[in-house]
């Protein structure tokens, strides 16, 4: 079966068209999920000025959600990261409210409009738009369902284990400590 299938493709590539198929076109033809995966996933993260009141912050985030919806994007998820300390001051402010919106769109023409309005907005301190690859989409999905917190779990595990191992280590240190004290005078005596 496999061989016949292979032959079929071979024939298709070389004789009916006369040119080897480009890998992109090949994927298009042979991937049954191609048309479902046509939508690109994007993720826009922005920092909102913390001076604003809570309602203003929410309305800021909502305007961009609405803007994306107006342009025909479907919003996958809005992640409110919340108030965070900035690693370095931006506009003489040392903290900011992080928002992350994940959305899907057929093409990237929306990105230009979105970034232009973000740039014009004085309430936005920084923003970053990223196209997600398939691993990124899966990562975000897993994070939403709570599958990914392994790193934090690992840390949580480490802390009790450290606490347990610490007293043991101290005991071990204590035990050999008196030995050299006893041995030292003996050596001195021999030299004398």
């Amino acid at each position: 079966m496999y061989q016949t299938q292979k032959k079929g493709i071979y024939f298709f590539e070389n004789q009916s068209i006369g040119l080897p198929l480009q890998p992109e076109i090949k994927n298009l033809l042979f991937n049954p999920n191609y048309f479902n995966k046509n939508m690109n996933h994007y993720e826009v993260t922005f920092i909102i000025d913390p001076v604003l009141s809570g309602d203003e912050i929410k309305s800021t985030a909502n305007t961009y959600e609405a803007l994306l919806k107006d342009q025909g994007c479907s919003i996958v998820h809005v992640h409110e990261i919340g108030l965070k300390q900035l690693a370095y001051p931006i506009n003489k402010k040392s903290s900011g409210i992080y928002y992350c919106i994940e959305f899907t769109s057929i093409d990237g023409t929306i990105i230009g409009k979105l970034e232009l309005s973000l740039r014009r907005d004085e309430r936005i301190m920084r923003f970053l738009t990223v196209r997600l690859d398939k691993y990124g989409i899966k990562y975000n999905e897993d994070r939403r369902t709570g599958k990914i917190s392994a790193y934090r779990k690992k840390e949580a595990k480490k802390k009790p284990s450290d606490a347990q191992s610490a007293p043991v280590a101290r005991q071990e240190v204590k035990a050999p400590a008196p030995a050299p004290v006893v041995a030292a005078p003996v050596v001195v005596n021999e030299e004398e």
Partner: peptide, 13 residues
């Protein structure tokens, strides 16, 4: 580099 841009990590520290 992305996280530096978003002030999640510092450029210099």
């Amino acid at each position: 580099k992305r996280s530096r841009h978003l002030a999640i990590l510092p450029y210099v520290a």
